[in-house]
Nucleic acid binder design. Structure first.
Lengths: 136, 136
DNA sequence: TTGCAAATACAACCAGGTTGCAAAATAAAG
DNA sequence: CTTTATTTTGCAACCTGGTTGTATTTGCAA
């Protein structure tokens, strides 16, 4: 049951063409996509509507939002099993690719009084085997 | 020898008022600062000049540039003491601010064969005490 | 002191993202 | 199948952070 319509219904939000198509696009993607990426895939969806659709998907937990190194937001479908929670990401600075490492992330540190924890992200940056081989 | 003028000279770049004052501001700061933060501290420095000054400091290794959770660039002095190396950053998803936690970062994980490590970043995201208090 | 490369100020511009509001569409009740 | 309350869409305008072009000024080395 991972088809967009059911997911949207289960999340308790209205099922609209824009949401269905955006969610399909996110699910089909192999990398987090920027607003511009998705817009070029769905040229007949209004620019502003797309911003709001993406935010609504994030709000109901069906998508994740993060900033890339240039300060641009990128969105990805957050699968039913929260598959990107609980392990470490390796980001290749050469090809931009993301690999998942098997190792478990470290435990969250203690926070000062009053701080509220949402998420921890352990990002490891470097050069992946392929790119390292090519430059050698 | 950590005064701005000497640092700039040692880095082989021209010593200008804008660079000296910006570097002083970065050194005095306890957190990475956005362009807007620095601008409000140095109101008589031109906006565009400040952008170029900050980029020049990054280019010659005297400052570090990173994006916060809202996609805004933040700058910090990369002193000889590398004060932002060796501890964890907390990024507030509400105000975009960055705080330094006392805890030491976890050791880097083992990488698959052929992968080359450049840097690890342990990012903790959530709501800082100030923002949490306001929303309550 | 002079000459020139590098830095500054200012205006215009650009990209990504947000806001306000009228018109259209969803989904639930009758 | 209608009606109705509420969301969502589409469009225009707007905002913030950041960049580019260029004439003028400044740092600094000869």
């Amino acid at each position: 049951m991972s088809n967009p319509v059911d997911l949207l219904r289960a999340a308790g939000v209205r099922v609209t063409p824009g949401r269905v198509r955006s969610l399909e696009a996110l699910q089909a993607a192999t990398q987090p996509m920027s607003h511009a990426d998705i817009e070029s895939l769905l040229p007949d969806v209004d620019r502003v509507t797309l911003y709001r659709v993406l935010d609504s998907l994030v709000a109901c937990g069906l998508a994740l939002k993060a900033v890339d190194t240039r300060g641009v937001f990128r969105f990805s479908a957050s699968g039913p099993h929260r598959q990107h929670d609980g392990h470490i990401h390796f980001r290749c600075t050469s090809c931009g690719g993301v690999s998942c490492l098997k190792a478990a992330p470290p435990p969250p540190p203690k926070l000062p009084r009053g701080f509220r924890l949402d998420a921890v992200e352990f990002d490891v940056r470097g050069t992946c085997a392929q790119c390292a081989g090519q430059s050698a």
